[in-house]
Amino acid sequence: MAETTGFLERHHFLLRRLHSLSGVAPIGVFLLFHLTTNASIVWGRLGGGGAPGAVKTFQHEVNFIHSLPALLLIEIFGLWLPILFHSVLGIIYAVSGRPNVGHYPYPGNRRYTLQRLSGYVGVLFIFYHVATLRWHWTFLIPGGTEWTAEYAASTMGAVLRGGAAGMTIAGLLVSAFYLLGVSLLVFHLANGLWTAAITWGLTISAQAQRRWGQVCFVIGGLLMLGAWSAVIGFATINHTVARGAEEGVHAPEPTPVLTPGMAEAGTLRDEH
């Protein structure tokens, strides 16, 4: 412990700035792409193919990501470690503060408090999100369904609803947690972008800070729109239609090993 403290103190400035930087890139950049990709479940409809078209677009994107070489390494070093670093340091830094928004209810102070709160909840949410979907800890998913990259949209819908069929009570909780989680993370990013500009000394005058704040507000607003449309889009997806569209994506290149199994799974889930 003593060593840890010593390390933190010796490299105080570097660590703090890396903490700030890691929030912007890679984490912020990733979130931007991640939400844009996921939001395609809604904006993909604009391509003319309606809901199935959107599912296809989304599936193509997922397929592209999963075709990247050394995906696991990219994930570990580009995502998980930065997120771990940002979270651990963030929590260490956040617990040193004593929020006082009750006495000083200024907008800036509310954002300060919410930044920390969103950090805590965000860490929980990201852990749940990655553990259930990426590491397949299906025991944490109501209904025990599993998300797969091959049927990305349909299985996501099942995860959010607590099953492939209609919305369950448990599913409602999961969806609500998703909505809350992504909203807070989007706020965390947008507000983080605003404070990072101060931290690094990009915006100095109060006017500059206000102008950049307006830009961050717009960025946050767009991301929020994407985040909400993704969650709502997945939660309300028609399982059968989505599954059909996904089959269509995979059809040109049938994968004999997986398709029957997934079909069975799908059948089973449909019976819930």
Binding site: S96, N100, Y106, G108, T195
Partner: peptide, 19 residues
């Protein structure tokens, strides 16, 4: 100001300028 307790410990609550 670049060591512990320095500039980086600011949390940008910006209450200071208000009070």
């Amino acid at each position: 100001l670049m060591g512990p307790g320095g500039i980086t410990d600011c949390g940008n609550a910006q209450n200071c300028v208000k009070v």
